[in-house]
Amino acid sequence: MGAVELGISAGMKPEGPLLSVRGLTRFYGARIGCADVSFDLWPGEVMGIVGESGSGKSTLLSCLAGHLVPDAGEVILATGAGPRDVLAMSEAERRRLSRGDWAFVHQNPRDGLRMGVSAGGNVGERLMAVGARHYGDIRARATDWLERVEIAAERIDDRPSAFSGGMQQRLQIARSLVTGPRLVFMDEPTGGLDVSVQARLLDLLRGLVREMGLSAIIVTHDLAVVRLLADRLMVMKSGRVVEQGLTDQVLDDPQHGYTQLLVSSVLQV
């Protein structure tokens, strides 16, 4: 169970937003990656970002997570020591943050896992990265997390290459959440999975977000996924935010022409 307690600041509920983004802009040469994006993310909130390929949603996520350097803007994170501009942090600080306080779930689990390391080692790595040095404890925590993501404990010494796609994705989630982060970035977390596996993963994510009080930013092009996971929704087109609001309100009463087109284009089963 320790994971939740370890959360460096899981118990800390800042009064204001967890993340305040202002005027975030990134160009690729003369082309806009994302432009002038601003929003607040509050503790415990799950925000979805939707838009078609090339709309800038992945660029935005990469800028937020520190994988890409934006050309302008601020990303202010509430920390125990007060608000900090993530973009102005040293690389060492930012990487420390990405080992403990926040996590990134990749669309392709191969990008977020070490395929040559056992499942237990994959989950344990983040613990060891923040200083855990007791093998027995690390293994117990890894076992607990494998069970939480519905992977049988006896698979702990198997490598992810022996796992199905859905299991790999669940392993990546366990690895991301074991340090009890406050903020999780997810890039199409259910993207490459069968529909039946998707549903189970969605339910798992919902439960974990609720239990751990996580804040999350989820990029996807799947409107059904955001409806089930996200409290709030941001719609992007050509690098700009065209609409944002409560998820079901944006989907059921879209105000912008592009969102209306997006919503009406979904195939009905």
């Binding site: 990487r95 237990g120 080692g121 060891m128 990265a129 702990i156």
Partner: peptide, 22 residues
């Protein structure tokens, strides 16, 4: 090189963890 410069050595213990696990 970046891991050395930032003293990110968790990975080294992963190798030892894998040893004990196996």
């Amino acid at each position: 090189r970046r891991m050395h410069s930032l003293e990110e050595y968790g990975l080294m213990h992963v190798k030892l963890y894998e040893d004990i696990a196996r």
